[in-house]
Structure formats: C-alpha cells, structure tokens
Amino acid sequence: MKTLVRSREFWLAVIIAVMIVATNFRSPGFASPGNLASIFNDTAILLILALGQMTVILTRSIDLSMASNLALTGMIVALINAAYPAIPVPALMVLAAFCGVVLGAFNGALVWLLGIPAIVVTLGTLTIYRGLIFLIAGGQWVNADAMSSSFVQLTRTDLLGLPLLSWYAIVVAAGFFLLMTRTSVGRSIYAIGVNPTASIYAGIDVGRTKFVAFCLSGMLSGFCGYLWVSRYVIGSVEVAKGYELTIVAACVIGGISIAGGVGTVVGAVLGALFLGVINSALPVINISPFWQMAISGAAIILAVVLNARGEKRGGRVILRQAESAS
C-alpha cells in the first residue's frame, strides 16, 4: 500500500481522475461510462504507440521514426486493400505488423551493428519512411470509397460494448505488461537501461536487446498504421505527421525516464490517457482546441520537473521496486 501511494503511476491516475471529475462538474455526462469509453477509444492508438516507444526509451534509445513507420505501413495496407479487396483484412493486419517489424529492424540493425546513436538513425528514417509514402503512392490519397467495408469495420465493430479498436489496445497493453515483467526479454530491456556494463557481465547482449526493442516498437507502429488508416479512413503522406513527439510526450508524462531503465507499462498507458483526457475535456469546458498544444507542452515540462524530483529522492526505491516486480 505504501509503495503504491508513493509510486508516480498512482499520482498520475489520481490526477487523471480529478480532471475527469472536475470536467464532469462543468459538463455533466463527461464521466459517464459511454463517454469514458469513447475517450479511451480515441486514445487507443496513442496508447499502443506509447508502449512501443517505452520499450525503446527503456534501453536508453529513442525512436523518432514511429509516426513515419505508421504512415508508411498504413499506406501499404490501404493500397493493397484498394487493389485487392478480396484479401482478408486480418491478413492485412498481420502484414502491417510485419512491415512495421522490417522498418523497425532497419533502425535496430543500424543501432546494433554500426553503433550509430538511435536519435540520428531514427531522425534519418523519419524523413526516409515518409518520403517513401510519396513514392509508392505517387502522391495520391487513398480515400474511404477505395477501402473495403471490412477494412473500415474491423476497428469499429462492437464487442462487449467496446469498439474493437479499444480491445486491440487492451490486448497489446496486457501483452506488454507480461512481456516486460514476466519474461527474460523484458528483464534484459530494463537491465541494459539501468546499467549496460553490468548487463554485459550478466551475459546480456546489449546491442541485440536494443535491436529487439526497435523491432517491437516497429511492430506496434506498423500495426497502428492499419488502425489509423482504418479509423480515420484516409491514407496520405500527411498521416500522423509530427506525431512522433506526441508519443514521446505520453511516455515522459507517464514517468518513463529518458535516461533509460525507469518506467512501467502502467505509466505509459496512463501517460497516453492523460493526453487523451485533456484533448476531450478542452472542447467540453469551452476552451478553444488551439490551447491543446500549449497545455500538453506545459504538462510535459511539469512531468519532467516532478519526475526529476522523484528520482532524486527515491531513485533506489524505484530500482528495487522494478527488481521485485520480476
């Protein structure tokens, strides 16, 4: 109980709850289950992407190419769907994840085999992947009428009261929770973030673990490529432009340390939800959506300041907690 109250995930959850309740005073019905579900559904893609970014940041790297990867795989599956509507959509979803892994593996290979800093590699692939969209699509858009109905419906169909999109996010989050806390891959990812030198002595291949982290973030980006195109029914060069930094923002707000090794799946999920709740609350309380950017910026700065204080006071505790979680 004491550790729960002291954890930053707990306080972030409290802040989110307070925001929801406060908005509900202004506009009754905001906290209704139906509206909360729709906020969750709106945040689902950001949530999945934040989990991918988290795995990379934990290894002391960063993946700035996620949004471009998303847009490129989204365009690929949209074009395939438009050309061959007979191909079943679940196969396209697998293909999207596979394309994402390939693009992520390219990042990871450069980081692993050549030792180029991740920020440089992904800065490069950020522009390359987005440029490739233009090349493969010839500057065209893929519109709603070109997509098959099942392609569009597989994120919208209701299952037990929630759209499938929300279920994908829940399944991915649950899967990542198990991956990060119950498997040796997850342990290695934390280990090389906390202390790369000690990890080598413990027999962990630091480079290969980073490679795996990039493949994971690539896989989720690719999968979200399908989700994004299906949800917003548009495939174009402009899809998710500039979104890479929103993903990093969700992670930072969720308490994932940019220095690596510190952060949890719950934190990433809450960080994404925090941004999602703000985005839906602003129009409700009659604040122009143009305020959104400044507010999320202020939230990031505040989160970093608070995280740094937390780390100074209780760095040891956090590490022990992470260890005992395995």
């Binding site: 930094l245 923002a249 930072v252 400044a294 999320s296 990031i300």
Partner: peptide, 9 residues
Amino acid sequence: IGTMSFFRG
C-alpha cells in the same frame, strides 16, 4: 520537446 509544444502552443 516540452517547450517545443509549449512555445508553438
């Protein structure tokens, strides 16, 4: 990254 959103915001 924070001030990037904040200033443009």
